[in-house]
Computed example of a mutant assay.
Amino acid sequence: MALFCERLKLLRKERGLKQREMAEQLGLALSSYQCYEYAQRFPDFHGLIAIADFFDVSLDYLVGRSDVRERR
C-alpha cells in the first residue's frame, strides 16, 4: 500500500494543506497522520472513507487500485 501514502501526500499538497492542518481535518494527532504519509500505519475502513470523502476521490484511487479519481 505504498501508493496510499504517496496519493495522500499528493492530495494534501494539491489542497495546499500542511500535515498539521490535515490531521486536524481528520481529527487525528499530528503524529498519527504522519504515520499515514510515512507508510508506518494505515487508517481503518472508516478513516479511509473519511479521507476519500474529504478529497472527493474514490477509495480505489486513494489506495492505488485505480488511476481514476472520480467516485462512481
Rank of each mutant, 00 (worst) to 15 (best):
A39K: 11
F45V: 14
D44T: 06
A50D: 15
R7N: 13
C35I: 01
D56V: 00
I51K: 01
I49L: 14
A2E: 15
S31D: 13
Y33T: 01
A52P: 11
A52D: 05
V57Y: 06
L28S: 09
E6H: 04
Q34T: 11
E24H: 08
R69D: 03
E70F: 10
V57C: 10
L8E: 09
A29Q: 14
Y36V: 08
F4E: 00
G47M: 12
Y61P: 09
S32R: 04
E21M: 01
Y36R: 01
G47Q: 01
G16N: 07
E6M: 07
F54W: 10
Y36W: 14
A2T: 08
G64A: 07
K13C: 07
R69K: 15
R69T: 02
A23I: 05
F55D: 11
L8T: 06
S58K: 11
Y38I: 04
L48F: 15
S66C: 02
L30K: 14
E24L: 08
L8Q: 07
Q34G: 02
A23C: 10
L26N: 12
D53Y: 10
L11T: 01
R7F: 09
I49N: 03
E37K: 09
G47F: 05
Q25N: 03
E37L: 08
A29P: 02
D67S: 14
A29N: 11
G47W: 12
Q25V: 07
L26F: 15
Q19H: 08
F45G: 00
F45E: 05
Q25F: 09
A50M: 13
F55L: 12
G27D: 04
Q40P: 04
R12F: 06
S66W: 12
Q40R: 15
Y38P: 00
A50Q: 15
V68R: 00
D67W: 06
L59F: 06
Q40V: 06
S66N: 08
E24G: 03
G16W: 02
H46V: 14
Q34H: 06
R65T: 00
R65Q: 03
L30R: 11
R12P: 07
S66H: 13
V68E: 02
G27C: 09
Q19L: 03
D53Q: 13
A23V: 05
A52I: 09
L11S: 04
L30T: 06
Q25M: 04
R71I: 12
M22F: 12
L30I: 13
G64T: 05
G16L: 06
